[in-house]
């Protein structure tokens, strides 16, 4: 009986999909949810897979305080930030891969994402594919280790201001402050100096319609903006290696914490509960 119901509901769904303009028929089975349709069609159900590495993609525009019209492909920070928090919180997730193909977007949303990625305790690796332009640059360098595909590009150009300008000097000062926030973040999280990054921002003669610099693949790694050129396998290998180092570090800490308090000499300090910050780029290990 249940198999007959399943066949009937499957047939109803098939009719709905073949004739999307006609009103869909309701299934008689109240328990029959959308999730069963793979069984109805006889397709194989993929086995459950629980990986320890999760991925976040930053694609199109980085959408912030203003909702972008839907012709823009946009990554919304209200979607990404809870995901980052969930990754940090979940004990099953041991590493995060951030894949970027972005044209830039909202400065504050981009910096928010960059800061949250940089402050995560779990190993993070970023991979720039296609393009990691403008506000994509701080997001890319925020990860513990960054990769760029050999053909990917990063455009570094000044922040612009459009619309009515009330006070020229004040507007200029504000723009400069915003720019300094970005330059400071990039210099702190990559091997490029603030002076060199600022110079790249204001280079003339490279872009037809703007000032700035375009760095392609290897050049991004050579100037110290990105750690290495590579693709998915290199990024995954690096992340796995960092996860192993991270685990070893935690086990080392637990070994230090493990001795019971009553056996510890009274004149020695107590166990260290706070994990020291380690910079993966400098190869710092516990």
């Amino acid at each position: 009986m249940s198999s007959t119901k399943g066949l009937l509901s499957g047939a109803a769904r098939l009719r709905n999909e073949l004739n999307p303009d006609t009103p869909p028929e309701e299934s008689n089975d109240s328990n029959d949810e959308q999730g069963n349709h793979l069984n109805d069609y006889g397709e194989l159900r993929l086995p459950e897979m629980h990986g320890n590495i999760h991925v976040i993609t930053i694609i199109g525009q980085v959408e912030g305080h203003l909702i972008m019209p839907s012709q823009n492909k946009a990554t919304k920070y209200e979607h990404i930030i809870p995901q980052l928090v969930a990754v940090e919180q979940s004990p099953e997730i041991e590493g995060l891969l951030v894949i970027l193909n972005t044209v830039g977007g909202d400065v504050e949303a981009g910096l928010a994402l960059a800061e949250i990625i940089a402050s995560m305790s779990k190993p993070t690796v970023s991979l720039v594919l296609g393009g990691g332009h403008s506000i994509g640059v701080p997001i890319a360098v925020a990860a513990d280790y960054s990769f760029i595909a050999p053909t990917a590009t990063m455009t570094i150009h000044p922040i612009r201001l459009t619309g009515m300008v009330v006070g020229v000097q004040q507007s200029f000062d504000y723009l400069e402050k915003m720019q300094d926030r970005i330059i400071d973040f990039v210099a702190r999280h990559s091997h490029i100096s603030a002076a060199q990054f600022r110079q790249m921002m204001t280079t003339t003669g490279e872009l037809a319609r703007d000032v700035g610099t375009v760095v392609v693949g290897e050049a991004a790694a050579e100037c110290g903006l990105i750690d290495e050129t590579g693709g998915l396998s290199q990024a995954m290998d690096k992340l796995r290696q960092m996860i192993e180092d991270h685990k070893a570090s935690e086990q080392g800490q637990e070994a230090r914490i493990d001795p019971p308090r009553e056996k510890a000499p009274a004149d020695k300090p107590g166990p260290i509960f706070k994990r020291p910050h380690r910079d993966w780029r400098k190869g710092e290990k516990p």
């Binding site: 839907s70 012709q71 400065v107 981009g110 455009t155």
Partner: peptide
């Protein structure tokens, strides 16, 4: 404030009628 290689005029060009 937008920092993008796409101009704001293009980003906020308006919503196409046939795209909900």
């Amino acid at each position: 404030m937008i920092w993008s290689i796409i101009s704001e005029e293009d980003i906020f060009a308006g919503q196409p009628v046939d795209m909900p």
